[in-house]
């Protein structure tokens, strides 16, 4: 059977995808705004992990060139640095998103006095 090695061999991706849907589930189905925001963070983190794990290689090291490496460089020995760099940016974006989300949640709380979505909707309708 090819299926088992197929699933086990890519366990890192499956893990990421699990987190991806877990986060999305929380964002859609939780009624508490803070829980939604936590879901959002899990969701974004799963993509970051996806990128990072995709760039991982066995027996390779960081692509930092030292004095003693003068001469031939074998790319097989090094990790691809680009996804890491990209994810650094993505982390910044995620942090910024989190910040804006929390600010908005705070503003919502000040207006409605609650963070429960159904209570907010109730307040809007009765207004």
């Amino acid at each position: 059977m090819d299926a088992i090695p197929y699933f086990i061999g890519k366990y890192n991706y499956w893990g990421c995808i699990f987190l991806f849907f877990l986060g999305m589930y929380a964002m859609i189905s939780k009624t508490n705004l803070i829980k939604k925001i936590i879901g959002l963070n899990i969701f974004q983190t799963s993509i970051i992990l996806f990128f990072i794990s995709a760039s991982f290689k066995h027996d390779a090291t960081l692509p930092i060139l030292m004095e003693e490496h003068k001469g031939a460089i074998d790319p097989v020995m090094y990790l691809n640095p680009l996804p890491h760099v990209l994810m650094l940016t993505a982390i910044v974006v995620a942090v910024a998103t989190l910040g804006v989300a929390l600010t908005l949640a705070l503003k919502v709380y000040r207006i409605y006095g609650t963070l429960e979505e159904d209570e907010i909707n109730h307040a809007i309708q009765s207004h």
């Binding site: 939604k36 969701f43 993509i47 996806f50 998103t97 989300a101 908005l104 207006i111 409605y112 907010i120």
Partner: peptide, 23 residues
Amino acid sequence: PFAALNYLLMGTIGASFYLMGVA
């Protein structure tokens, strides 16, 4: 603010799908 927060959640899902596509 509440509308903006909903937009943020939906918008981030959209952007993240795109980022996953980039991956």
